[in-house]
């Protein structure tokens, strides 16, 4: 309760939370407000926004409802962004903890693998992965996580290296605890805070990467995505710029919201640390 209160102390946090709340409501309300297939034809093609009351944001080249697409696109963006970030954080934290805690050869091997992933641009990695395996929601999530887990892994390892030397880890060894239990029960939870601080950056990057993949036609073809909408609108950019601008604005607002909320969390925990 106190944490929540402190979180809402900063205007950034409030703005971020509001944007994210709006986004979540959009995603949850999409099937209720726009039941049926958002990719179905709803009216005449290329209807400009605010022309018809039932199609407030107009229609695209094929006559699909842009507002319905926007709402359903929010589902994809959030689902992919959050899941990919969660997967990246989980993999990163586990790899980093193993490397930092085990040391020696295991550390060497794990960190060289991390290096290998980090030297390849993460977008190229995602691109290559989706091209090979074929586009579907799960594959896109995996592709994005593949390029995003190295940061959390490095942060977790650095934190674990310092925690490893603390007395309570020695204490856990003295009572005969299994090394894996020490690593994941004693060390990992205490190494998490700085790793979680990365989450807003990773979620934002994942949403952008998903949009970029969809823009290139590598998104799940059965789902509406904002990146796909921008790609759709690109061909008629001169005559119907709103088709690209509307999902573009949604994307910018989403990333902004994630950043601001993340900033708010960091700020509120920083206050808590300085108090204790």
């Amino acid at each position: 309760m106190k944490r929540l209160h402190r979180f809402f102390q900063t205007p950034e946090a409030i703005a971020g939370a509001l944007i994210l709340a709006l986004l979540v409501i959009m995603a949850l309300a999409a099937p209720l407000l726009f039941p049926g297939d958002p990719q179905a034809i709803a009216g005449p093609a290329l209807l400009s926004p605010f022309q018809h009351w039932s199609l407030p944001l107009g229609t695209d080249r094929l006559g699909r409802d842009v507002l319905a697409e926007l709402f359903h696109g929010a589902r994809t963006s959030l689902a992919v962004g959050l899941t990919a970030a969660a997967a990246a954080l989980l993999v990163g934290a586990v790899v980093g903890t193993m490397a930092g805690f085990a040391g020696g050869l295991i550390d060497e091997v794990l960190m060289r693998i991390t290096d290998a992933f980090q030297t390849v641009p993460s977008f190229l990695l995602a691109l290559a992965f989706v091209s090979i395996v074929g586009p579907s929601l799960g594959v896109v999530i995996a592709a994005i996580a593949l390029g995003a887990w190295t940061g959390p892994a490095r942060v977790a390892r650095a934190e674990v290296l310092s925690i490893r030397e603390r007395d309570y880890v020695a204490g856990a060894r003295v009572i005969g605890m299994h090394p894996l239990e020490i690593a994941f029960r004693e060390v990992l939870p205490n190494a998490l805070p700085p790793v979680l601080a990365l989450s807003s950056v990773i979620v934002a990057a994942a949403i952008l990467t998903e949009a970029a993949l969809s823009f290139l036609g590598l998104g799940d073809p059965n789902r509406v995505t904002w990146g796909g909408m921008i790609a759709e609108g690109r061909t008629v950019l001169r005559t119907a710029p709103f088709l690209s601008i509307v999902p573009g604005i949604a994307l910018v607002l989403t990333v902004l919201g994630v950043y601001l909320a993340g900033e708010g969390v960091v700020e509120s925990t920083a206050v808590r640390r300085s108090l204790s």
Binding site: D167, G171, V174, P189, N190
Partner: peptide, 21 residues
């Protein structure tokens, strides 16, 4: 690990000796 049951330790700083959580 099994043998460790018979050989225990108490540290100087009792706060640092326990997982803070």
């Amino acid at each position: 690990r099994a043998r460790r049951a018979r050989l225990q330790m108490v540290f100087q700083d009792p706060l640092a000796a326990f997982n803070p959580r």
